[in-house]
Simulated scan of single mutants.
Amino acid sequence: MLSARLAITSYFTFASILLIGVIARPTGPFVVVVTNPADNAVGNMAAVTGAGGRFVWSGRYSWISVAQSDAPDFASRLFKAGAILVLNHDLAVGCLEGQ
């Protein structure tokens, strides 16, 4: 009984993480860029410009911003430029608008 509950919990957790990963995958020209909080806006802007993107918007936290680029490999270039996390803009719009 315990092993069946553990298996069900494990499968549910794995499926949830997989679903979140698919939904959060950056697609389209607009992405949310998260950089090191210690670097503030300077680090965030350096990552965006270093990846060849354009700054669009930032909210309460200067290390989180929305950036835009038409390049298909923009997300991977952001990671190479120092971004910690790059998310789908559509997923995070509701979180950022209240800032």
Rank of each mutant, 00 (worst) to 15 (best):
H89C: 01
L6I: 03
A15R: 08
V42A: 14
L85H: 06
W57E: 14
A75P: 15
S76A: 13
N88S: 08
P26E: 03
M45R: 15
H89P: 00
P72I: 08
A15M: 12
L87A: 05
G50D: 07
A67C: 01
W57H: 14
V86M: 05
I84T: 06
L78Y: 05
F14Q: 12
W57F: 05
N44Q: 08
A7P: 00
L78S: 12
G52H: 14
A81S: 14
A83Y: 04
F79S: 00
V42E: 07
G52S: 09
R54G: 04
L85N: 09
R77K: 15
A67R: 02
T9H: 05
S76I: 01
A71Q: 15
P72W: 02
S10L: 07
A38Y: 11
V32D: 10
T13E: 03
N88P: 01
A15L: 15
N36W: 02
S16C: 10
Y61A: 05
R77C: 04
F12W: 07
M45G: 02
T27C: 02
W63E: 01
S65P: 04
G53L: 01
G59I: 02
S76D: 15
L91E: 03
V33T: 08
A47D: 02
A75M: 08
R25G: 00
V66E: 14
Y11L: 15
G82V: 07
F74I: 06
S16L: 15
D90V: 00
F79M: 08
T49R: 15
L18Y: 05
A7Q: 03
R60E: 10
G50H: 05
D39A: 14
G59T: 03
A24Y: 04
N88Y: 05
G43W: 10
P72R: 09
A92E: 07
S10H: 03
R25K: 13
L91K: 00
W57T: 03
N40W: 12
N40S: 11
F12A: 14
I23L: 15
S76W: 09
G52R: 07
S16D: 06
D90K: 15
I23W: 11
Y11R: 10
A83P: 13
A71T: 09
F14P: 00
I23S: 05
F14Y: 06
T13M: 13
V22H: 11
K80M: 05
L78M: 05
